[in-house]
Design a protein around this nucleic acid. Sequence first.
DNA 1: CGGTTCACG
DNA 2: ACGTACGTGAACCGT
Length: 882
Amino acid sequence: MSEKRLLLIDGNSITYKAFFALINQVNSFVNNEGIHTNAVFGFNNMLNIMLDKFKPTNVLVAFDAGKTTFRTEMYSDYKAGRDKTPDELREQFDYVKKLLKNRGIKYYQLNNYEADDIIGTLSKEADQLGFETTIVTGDNDLTQLCSDKTTVSISNRGVSGVVRYDTDYVKETMGITPAQIIDWKALKGDSSDNYSGVTGVGDKTALKLVTQFGSVENLYEHLDEVSGKKLLEHLTEDKENAFLAKKLATINRDAPIEITVDDTVYDGDHIEDLINFYREMNFRKFLSEMSADQVETMDKVEFVELNSDNAKEIDVKDGSNVSFYLGIDGDNYHTADYIGFAMKVDEINYISRDIELLMDDNLKALLESDKISKNVFDGKRTYVGLNRLGIKLNNVDFDLLLASYLLDTNDNSYDLGKVANRHDYFDVQSDEDVYGKGAKRAIPDDDILFDHFARKVNAINSLKDKLFDELKSNDQLDLYRDVELPLSFVLARMEIAGVVINKDILISMKSKISEKLLEIKQSIYNDAGEEFNIASPKQLGEILFDKMQLPVVKKTKTGYSTAVGVLEQLAPDYPIVEKVLEYRKYSKILSTYVEGLLSDIHVDNKVHTRYLQTLTQTGRLSSVDPNLQNIPVRTEEGRKIRQAFIPSESNWQIFSSDYSQIELRVLASISGDKNMQDEFIHNDDIHASTARRIFGLSDNSEVTPEYRRQAKAVNFGIVYGISDFGLAKNTGISRNDAKEFIEKYFDEYPGVKKYMEDSVNSAREKGYVETILHRRRYLPDINAKNFNLRSFAERTAMNSPIQGSAADIIKIAMIKMEQELEKRNLKAKMLLQVHDELIFEAPSEEIEILEELVPKVMDSAVKLNVPLNVKSHYGNSWYSLK
DNA sequence: CGGTTCACG
DNA sequence: ACGTACGTGAACCGT
């Protein structure tokens, strides 16, 4: 890389691009003074990418000075007819310039000239001085400036994706030199700049002419060589136009600018001003990304290092409140090492790396006390971490992570610093900034670590009142206090309990399946005539569709699709495809479930999953390390995996209860649709009833399995926020049929139709939708101009309250269930939750009790306008539930 | 690290 | 005309 690197940015063009790339969020990017900030934000994003990639020594951003330039003198309609700049954008130009100032970047504009000319003039000087130059812009005009030393990056997708043009690239893609782009534009004109070239000459013809004649001048000297009578006529008639257009298209590389490359030296961010500016703009993202330099601008924090002596002296009165943070080095808190802890008591921050201090009587009693309340970040993590030390965390009042997630499901990072930043609290950094990331990650020395920990407990402590106020004004305090907070500890205890896995079963499955796979693999190689990686969609596609010439059913962005649906269509005619399907099925079972599960077994022969309580956008849980919410059940081969999930004691059983059609029942209840409600109240077969309605059959008539299957698909579609296209694609019926089904459905269930419309309308007005317990999901795209984004938001508006309310219901059931087990002194333990299903282990003699108790608790968890229905099963393993 | 595939509700 | 079913996690490929 050259020592001298100049970055030239077309300020107007990039600001425009940034504004329209983030147009959907224009209303969520508003600072405290009501100024829109989306273009400033997008501009800065682009800047970060270019600075990082190009590491320039010199930078200049050029702006257009005004409407009139030497080009408008030449041609008064130059750039006429352009849409007026929106007010929301106009107000941002001054802030882009402020941003540049604070980032230590020069900018320049010159009366009578466009940004292009400034860039052209400077890049010429830079070329002569031996600079390596990169020009960043949003439009293609500047590609004429490409040279050996100068490349032009054109942003396409939003502002962060760029296409890089250098001389070779221009030659390769267009077959002409960068300078000839001027001649090309002279002939074809430029509609966005509002000048025409030669009538009837577009991109293609212009390119042909330039390739043949080299320049406009040469073309007009050899008009006799032009083929085509019409074309010749047009060229002759529009000669003047062509020469004018060439002048307009030519960037002036000798503009009378008053700066030189020497004036563009880049000296880096003005940290303090930049932080203030980011705060003024509400740019939490950039603030949180700032380097350790930020620490210097933050107030100093005091802390006291704890040791075995002063730890005994901490005296906390009953009725008081402390903030506590337990540092664990990694995601998996069941096994990861401890880093240390911090505790804020009466405005004093106590810190230590010595985790054993927590096990001393004094601190242990404090954490276990039901008289002293605690504030934490991620109570579940803290509970499990302390449990490993034999400490039972008690009386948690505030969980920053949980509260933040309830306020906005997007504020769900497991990094305390990032979450605090999102609530405008900036006196704490993210772990990534303090520890580094990837291979460089390391726990720092005491002084840095203690400072960071002290800031963490400060952040927890400081945000408590603010977040409680916000929960209250959202009407979400009950959801927090009665559901999510108690649930976090129910989940902690389920995770700690774990599930016993019979290793021997998995090991024997492993050898059987491996053998089978070897067999299938050989047979596939035989059919293909060569060996290849069957697991590679690319290689498989080449074998099937190139070498063996199978008909192509569907393509993906990157090549042939080899998804199940595609292969299933081909399977009847091509034995190799059938074998590939077999291979896929067994290798999935082997790698994800047999080998995957084996590698997740702890020393106690159990798997201890982690439920992510603050991840999903709907309020559901998710499960990781291992994911126990997607253990196979639909095919017999896969289902056998469940044989390995067994009770922890002999003579115990696995017991499971699940809600039937909980989402449809929720829909019937919240939509108020009388017809659907009646069907659930009468305990009808809902899919059969739907079939009778949409196919116009008489009441109580037999419903064929095919009709029922289609009606079931429609019911699913309704819950997902239906579209005729989606339904057609998923069921294989025609789009017209799908459309008719949906119309008939809405005729028959008018309450459902109204609910769908109301959901979308309410989302448009409020910007969010909510569940029966006021769980919120914000939908910023609901008013988007982009059809795709908007449609997606609309379907989400219909689906999220349904899926989310079902999640609310089972969460309440879980809390009540744990209480009931305790109250009745049962040995039974709740182990797993799979969205609409709770799984327990219990001594055989308790099964009878559970059969009555669990459904009772589950179906009375929340009072709906329709009954809930719960079915139970039990057996010796998760496989053999009867 | 994004794309594809496939496991679940 | 646009081009989609809702919500997840893990393994693997290939850049």
